[in-house]
Design a protein around this nucleic acid. Structure first.
Lengths: 250, 250
DNA sequence: ATTGGCATATTGTCCGACAATATGTCAATC
DNA sequence: GATTGACATATTGTCGGACAATATGCCAAT
């Protein structure tokens, strides 16, 4: 506050450790496409020589990228450049939400924005492939009526199929944190309330609306579906306004 | 395919390297709250002794966490446990979207889902603090009419303020990838079209609607604002259906 | 109160070494 | 001819020790 150079004449110089610089450069090479996905990363020795540092430093740099899913391993040995999956890409966002004590209500509000959006977009052009997969999903939902484990499975899958039908890969990725965080809640609701019939009804009407391309109705039924879910959470004894991680998840 | 043990009697055993195990354990300790945010992480030597591995291994484990923002540094020396910021948490999602060649249209559709949602939620209870900050933002927007650099700044800030007013930290985080990816596009649009007046009009009406708590109108004006943006992108010569990273961003 | 010197603790980087594992080659065997 | 076994090779995972650079705290000098 009161030093000689208190006025901002000089900006603090940011000298990053070598492993961060190396990491950033490899990262840039990957994102820019210079290193194409699927390609084998040069060996650690190679990289060490190219950058003029030790293998230790290179390894730390690689670890920095490994978490982000930009680098995976071909066979538990050599490393390959990867296209991050939606799961790995949204993992840090999910854990951040967890640690920020995000509530069911907050997540639900987001879902209330994205899920009807997906349903609406899915009405534009439903591919025959996806139509078949959704039909199959509906079929399995009917059969799973009492098997809560299977019901949970198909319920999640149904929403993913709709998102896929929306033909928007960004939406698919943006939705993923909801998947990861809502999963335990879905499970709790299904385990305790066995809302099989209700779910089947909703899914069927949604499927019909999407097949006929009726955007308004699809969005409307998805909203109803989400409202059902909200009610389910409350009836299952979970705290809708409480943080999702404080509720039980065993 | 045709080996002796081709039938799935045995599942492939997953032996993770030590640095991954160590990383996961530290990670669990942080997420579970065992290691509280702000707390200093034990020294590398300490951790090495506790886990019974070398400092090298511990360092690699730490690098794995460092990228996710769970660990930062207090003073460029000691490491501290951090609550991930929304920026760091959504970074991997942003780069994943970039690498998947996400288009303007896809991002815009998501924004069309989230931004009106934020505007609507903001109508519930606008704190006096936020109201003041939004008013200040509007004021600066008026003054910045010709200064494109400043205009970009306040435009982004305005949307962030609305999201903040929505009182939903999850939404704040989910929105962040849009911020990071749209930024260059906003810049391009503003640079080439100088849509100052148009922006001020929209912002003013949005602000009024939020102040009076009129949810429908707030959502409606946000949608109009987004449609304006869509038109802006096209008029600026950017390819609305093309990947965002192929368009220029210098 | 500020400055300078000094010991200490901690991280960043280097070096060299070895173990474990995947790959490829070649001969031996049925 | 296909499988098996033995062997050399390449690459990653882990170890141990070393030193440099830097932040921290204490103490004396001014």
């Amino acid at each position: 506050m009161s030093g000689k150079l208190s006025n901002g004449k000089f900006q603090k110089l940011a000298r990053a450790p070598a492993y961060q610089v190396v990491s950033q450069q490899i990262r840039d090479a990957i994102v820019s496409g210079e290193l194409k996905t699927g390609e084998l990363l040069p060996t650690e020795m190679d990289l060490a020589q190219q950058f003029g540092v030790t293998r230790t430093t290179v390894r730390e740099a690689i670890r920095l990228l490994e978490y982000g899913g930009l680098i995976g391993r071909a066979d538990r040995k050599r490393l390959v450049v990867c296209l991050p999956t939606k799961e790995s890409a949204s993992k840090s966002l999910s854990t951040a939400m967890l640690m920020h004590d995000v509530t069911f209500r907050e997540l639900w509000e987001i879902a209330m924005g994205l899920e009807p959006l997906a349903a609406g977009l899915a009405c534009k052009a439903l591919s025959t492939d996806l139509k078949a997969r959704m039909a199959d999903n509906l079929h399995r939902t009917l059969e799973a009526k009492s098997d809560t484990r299977e019901l949970l499975e198909v319920e999640i899958e149904f929403h993913n199929l709709i998102a896929e039908a929306a033909n928007n890969s960004a939406l698919l990725m943006a939705r993923e944190p909801l998947n990861q965080l809502f999963y335990p809640a879905f499970k709790a609701v299904i385990d305790r309330l066995h809302p099989g019939g209700r779910i089947i009804d909703c899914h069927t009407r949604l499927f019909d609306a999407i097949c006929t391309g009726d955007k308004e109705i699809a969005e409307e039924w998805m909203r109803k579906h989400m409202v059902d879910f909200e009610r389910g959470i409350k009836m299952a004894g979970l705290d809708f306004n409480g943080p999702i991680n404080h509720n039980d998840l065993h």
